[in-house]
């Protein structure tokens, strides 16, 4: 009798698990080529580096990987060492792309026209010093990635091992309107799957204005205005989905805002946003954020 009860309970538990898994899959827009683990994790209890990263679906056929010269294989070895502890993706190309974006602001603050423009204008010296230390640490941690990024040839030869990564590689090779359709697909995937790093990488691509029906949402076809509202909305979602890595005090987002408003360097993103925008503009950003959130939850949004 007891055995029968136990068997019944086990069977019920197994069937419940199957049903729950099925339901969760239905909530996400799953393309034939992508099966991203959303991994929406409560970040409050974890450090930035411990946040579980989504695992992009790997390419099945290894023969698709390009054959590299011995020199490039050697350099690939350096990169693999530097990026061994992946934060955003198991795909080295994607991981390198995100880190390159983050490091880019470090470098343009260190040398170049932004350095010249900002000289003497940053009021928050504590933040400025801490940002420099953060950037120095990144350089020491990933020197080969840094020098490769500076020579602008990193992404040309670095292989991608995931379907999303390959889509991104293709997108980077397309000019103007050619990549719009692909960009739209990737932006929508990024939002649907709540992947902050993908939103960072593709959010501002050529398809950004048409990824959703922003004109109807906002009530205007003014592309200059709409572009800025969308950018702010994307920034808010990036901060929501990956606050530690992509919205922290020394993130590229904070650096970007510092460049725009040097007197506000170092203040948290939400505070910066509240302070620097008129009420109506804030409402438009909230409108777009809410609709994108609804899409991310599985809503049928155009």
């Amino acid at each position: 009798m007891a055995n029968k009860v136990l068997v019944v309970l086990v069977v019920i538990a197994l069937l419940l698990w199957v049903v729950i898994q099925q339901r969760d899959q239905n909530l996400h827009m799953v393309s034939a080529n992508d099966n991203t683990d959303k991994g929406s994790v409560d970040t409050s209890s974890k450090t930035a580096e411990q946040i579980k990263k989504p695992s992009e679906q790997k390419i099945q056929n290894k023969s698709d990987e390009p054959i590299l010269s011995p020199d490039k294989e050697h350099r690939l070895g350096f990169l693999k060492q530097e990026l061994a502890t992946t934060v955003f993706s198991d795909d080295l190309f994607v991981e390198a792309s995100v880190h390159s974006q983050l490091m880019m602001y470090c470098e343009i603050f260190k040398a170049g026209f932004i350095r010249t423009e900002l000289k003497g204008k940053i009021k928050n010296k504590t933040w400025e010093d801490a940002y420099k230390k953060h950037c120095d640490a990144q350089r020491t941690l990933r020197p080969h990635l840094l020098v490769s990024m500076v020579s602008s040839e990193l992404l040309d030869w670095l292989p991608s091992t995931s379907f999303m990564g390959q889509k991104f590689k293709t997108l980077l090779s397309l000019n103007g309107d050619q990549g719009e359709e692909l960009a739209i697909e990737m932006i929508r995937l990024a939002v649907r799957n709540k992947e902050a790093h993908w939103l960072l990488l593709v959010g501002q691509s050529q398809g950004m204005l048409n990824a959703f029906n922003y004109q109807e949402w906002l009530g205007t076809n003014n592309p200059q205005y709409n572009r800025q509202i969308i950018q702010l909305a994307q920034q808010q979602l990036i901060c929501e989905w990956d606050p530690g890595n992509l919205c922290g005090p020394y993130s590229s987002l904070m650096a970007q805002n510092c460049w725009q408003t040097p007197s506000d360097c170092g203040i948290p993103y939400s505070e910066w946003f509240e302070k620097n925008h008129m009420p109506g503009i804030k409402k438009d950003v909230a409108l777009v954020v809410n609709r994108l959130r609804a899409y991310a939850r599985g809503g049928d949004i155009e």
Binding site: D71, R75, A111, L146
Partner: peptide, 22 residues
């Protein structure tokens, strides 16, 4: 000189050269 740094085989040496160039 900066562009050529990516071909250096020792990343730490390349980083030091990069800092000097900057």
């Amino acid at each position: 000189e900066m562009m050529a740094l990516a071909e250096w085989l020792d990343p730490q040496e390349a980083l030091a050269a990069y800092e000097a160039l900057i």
